[in-house]
Design a protein around this nucleic acid. Sequence first.
DNA 1: GACTTTGAGATTGTATTCATAATTCATAAT
DNA 2: ATTATGAATTATGAATACAATCTCAAAGTC
Lengths: 231, 231
Amino acid sequence: MTELMEPAMIVRRSLHDELIDRLREMIVTGDLEPGTKVPEQNLAAKFGVSRTPLREALKVLASEGLITLTPNKGATISQLTLEDLEEAFPVMGALEALSGELACERISDAAIGVIRQLHDQMIRHYQAKEMPEYFRCNQEIHNQILAAADNATLTSMYRSLSGRVRRARYVANISKKRWEQAVSEHEEIIAALVARNGAALSEVLKRHLVNKFETVKETIRSAGVGNLQEA
Amino acid sequence: MTELMEPAMIVRRSLHDELIDRLREMIVTGDLEPGTKVPEQNLAAKFGVSRTPLREALKVLASEGLITLTPNKGATISQLTLEDLEEAFPVMGALEALSGELACERISDAAIGVIRQLHDQMIRHYQAKEMPEYFRCNQEIHNQILAAADNATLTSMYRSLSGRVRRARYVANISKKRWEQAVSEHEEIIAALVARNGAALSEVLKRHLVNKFETVKETIRSAGVGNLQEA
DNA sequence: GACTTTGAGATTGTATTCATAATTCATAAT
DNA sequence: ATTATGAATTATGAATACAATCTCAAAGTC
């Protein structure tokens, strides 16, 4: 009897699910700018769907804080105020610290190896002054640590915050000095991870984030990033 | 010229908002038991609304993790597994620790006074062995600390987790010994708060939660609480 | 008798329609 | 000229209608 080739499962996501992801992506990447109104008909037409699934998606995004829903007046992309950032960062810090502790308890040698490779690669990008690639590695390292913590609740909460905050785009101009500091912090991160020293990793991750936040605030103050609205 | 009395703003909540709150309450309090299916028509009829706003509410609750939506198969009240609990508690711990630190930085003398009163009241309920009243005060103290931390992001994340976890009902039988321990921890909490010692408060809150969690797990193991499903 | 198959009924997913509130813009009044 | 008013338009909120999918039992097959 000939073996049937396993046909690729047809995955048909529901429209509202698809819409949630697409809209979230558009908001986080800045395709949809904060403050802009989101007329339902308009958007529904753009996506080629009816208003019903779109509205369902908007409700979810509103509960995530990415969209602001005003009764009878519709949806707008949430403004990210400086206060929002100042609120979000300590929470992110706490979560990241936790992820460090949990990761040290659970991470496998193989996973550490992967992170080390990413780290080395990141360092090379640093030396070559390749910012975007550097940031990609950077992001991926933090993702790997989060993954090693192996806690879905933690991951989803961190992701949610991270998504909200990422809308503040500050990456363009990072000072040379700050970059050095960040790299040095990353050396500490690797060291703590290899030593499986949860307390140390937790501490340095938190410090890393605080410094990052300082940079963001500085950038915002000087550049007056459009995405941000002074509170 | 006579001063016009400020007329109360007319607030008309949308149905989906109302439904979100009502359903969340029903789930958290256990009115809707985990695992039960939630046929849309049925539920919509019960609330006297159409399926449209109900579906919007279900999507939001699903994103909060209280409901599980399976494509084309509908909604069920999420099961809370032991693993879910084990995941949620460290995250709650981290958030609670943060709330302690922030609270110590910001709390006013007046707010400390309120908490102290609640604490004293709680102790009286403890001595009178009035469990429900004790728990109410207990809950309120933690709420007040959270409020003092004055961080909306933190509050909403904590509330979300707390809501999920609260579905594990374990309060019925708490051991005398554990109750003593909890009260003693609460004495420490008050002391740290009065001293505005963030590190100490943070530490004791975390420990408090760990112990609470141990009790929950113990209860579950012995009683096999219906709400919980062994993973 | 056990296992598919199939189709009616029920349920969910999406579109459309209707109702109601908000906005706009022209007009009138000060 | 500026503000206030109100009808027309537009957008949102909710209900209904239709389409796609699933469930489950009855019939059929081996």
